[in-house]
Nucleic acid binder design. Sequence first.
DNA 1: GTCTATAACGTGATAGAC
DNA 2: GTCTATCACGTTATAGAC
Lengths: 186, 186
Amino acid sequence: MTAVHTDRSSLVKDAIRDSARRLFTAQGFEATGVRDIAADAGVNPAIVIRHFGSKERLFVMSIDAPAKWRALLEGPLETLGERVTRALLRGQHNGLPIWGAMVRASGRPDIHDHLKRSVVALFAEPLVERLAGPDAELRAHLFAAQLVGIMSALVVYDDEFVMHAPVESVVAHYGRSLQLTLTPSG
Amino acid sequence: MTAVHTDRSSLVKDAIRDSARRLFTAQGFEATGVRDIAADAGVNPAIVIRHFGSKERLFVMSIDAPAKWRALLEGPLETLGERVTRALLRGQHNGLPIWGAMVRASGRPDIHDHLKRSVVALFAEPLVERLAGPDAELRAHLFAAQLVGIMSALVVYDDEFVMHAPVESVVAHYGRSLQLTLTPSG
DNA sequence: GTCTATAACGTGATAGAC
DNA sequence: GTCTATCACGTTATAGAC
């Protein structure tokens, strides 16, 4: 019931959001000006702010993370480490680039808040109830941290060696370590 | 020949660097203005730029990373995962906060470059020659990625659950996974 | 002649008037 | 909704002090 009005203002808002997502993803938060977004969407710079309040909030609202990430942690726990690593390395997850942009812009308060919530909500919490054994909640959060590590290598600090390594080699090593974090100790 | 001149300009430069490091660490890159740094150092805003070229380059030059991080990866490989995790969690590493500031400001080109080089040089390369078995270089880089993961939880996205968890619990789980990455597979 | 201070410029986000 | 003003900030031009 929320999505597709044919209001003019909703169409404009969607156009701005689409332009913003595209430009932020391609160029990052700093390099993308409100004027660039407005021009791309074919509107006046002022209405961008009028609709979204600020460039920061527009950035946050232009990310449609949940839809893209939910599938990542589905499927059997026993092979989750490998599957997640493979999915990330293959780069089909088109959410990865803008996630990198979010981290690199997390000096901004609103973006930092959103990053914080996103990582916990998307990568840790879905696992909490599924994990068995002691420290289940902690291990879910540490799994999330470990995911953030490989994601950072790919789209935050751009480790060429990891980016160009054979996918299955990375899967074998990093996937194995991720899997261990899911496994109760002892 | 390099270090301690008693030149006035060198003293000024050191004062600026010290103020910059302190403020950047406490408030982050965005929230710290050139004027703030200048005021703290007791100099004019213009000479900050004159001495360092730009705010970005000042940030990079105010980090004295190598001195602080070198010790982290020393000692026997067999227990490195645990020891590194414990050292990070105890927060004695006063390099951690400004590392977080660097990641959160890595949307800026110069800072991104420095981050990229730092992670590889400080966390991956020191291990390459020490690791045995296949994919030694890749595993060193993946170990670095994994370190970045826990560091990010602590000072980038601020996962309260990880930050407040018992140190030895985190050491047991994350340290164990780190250690596995160091261990040849098969 | 080098180092420092004052003042101004350019840019970019944002708020208010019409 | 559009246009224009304001404000903050990094940076530079200009010129003075030692």
